[in-house]
Design a binder for these strands. Structure first.
Length: 216
DNA sequence: GGTCGGATCATCT
DNA sequence: GATGATCCGACCG
């Protein structure tokens, strides 16, 4: 069941976000990214969608993060330690690309995983990239496929082409859902996932995630 | 409607 | 050598 949302009735408008938007605490950025647009220009094709689901990964103390203390700084996660506003793209399960935006202060490895969006521009291109499969961009792997995001964009700033985040509508608190994180085996219960209630771009996933707190 | 197993490989131990 | 911030198709009801 989908809800009527602002971008369904009003033409998109807004300006590219600046790096200052991203050099804030990761939870603030994750929440405020809802309603913004992600625009990619890859191989001459422009595709865009409204961000409707995000997940925060909070620094070295976060055991679910690729940059947890256990792992430390590696070749893969080096972008997370860099300046805010850059893309951290990685390969998931050897199959999919997933994209984060680095937040916070340089040296502090925080990032927001983009988990879902509602495509609003370049729908034909996105559908072709997805081989016609639906949903188009609900879920981090699908999102990257629909927008043509690969590791070619690793470390790129997201403040201008080929990949940029544009301000959109401030999603009211009443429409923002908060939950634990999906697919992680540790600290999954931290309320670091943000999504737009009623949006078709929010990923569906298996219920009854295994509880990590159970003990003998 | 739902639940389940396999794909597939860069990365890290 | 094991793991994983996922997705898809098969199968069951």
């Amino acid at each position: 069941m989908s809800r009527m949302l602002p971008w369904h009735v009003a033409p998109p408008s807004g300006d590219p976000l600046r790096e200052g938007f991203f050099s804030r605490p990761v939870l603030d950025v994750a929440r405020d990214l809802l309603g913004c647009r992600l625009v990619s220009t890859v191989s001459g094709a422009r595709t865009a969608g409204v961000i409707v689901e995000t997940e925060a990964y909070q620094g070295a103390d976060d055991p679910a993060s690729h940059a947890a203390t256990r792992a430390g700084r590696t070749h893969r996660n080096r972008a997370m330690f860099g300046a805010a506003g850059r893309a951290y793209v990685y390969r998931s399960y050897g199959v999919h690309w997933c994209m984060n935006i680095v937040t916070g202060d340089e040296g502090c490895p925080e990032a927001v995983l983009l988990r879902g969006l509602e495509p609003i521009e370049g729908l034909d291109t996105a559908a072709a990239r997805r081989g016609g499969r639906r949903p188009l961009a609900a879920g981090p792997g699908r999102l990257c496929e629909a927008l043509g995001i690969t590791d070619a964009l690793y470390g790129h700033l997201v403040t201008g082409p080929p990949l940029e985040v544009v301000s959109g509508w401030r999603v009211p608190d009443a429409l923002v859902g908060v939950s634990g994180r999906i697919g992680v085996s540790e600290a999954a219960d931290r309320p670091f996932r943000f999504y737009v209630l009623g949006s078709t771009g929010v990923s569906r996933h298996r219920l009854s995630a295994p509880s990590k707190t159970e003990k003998g």
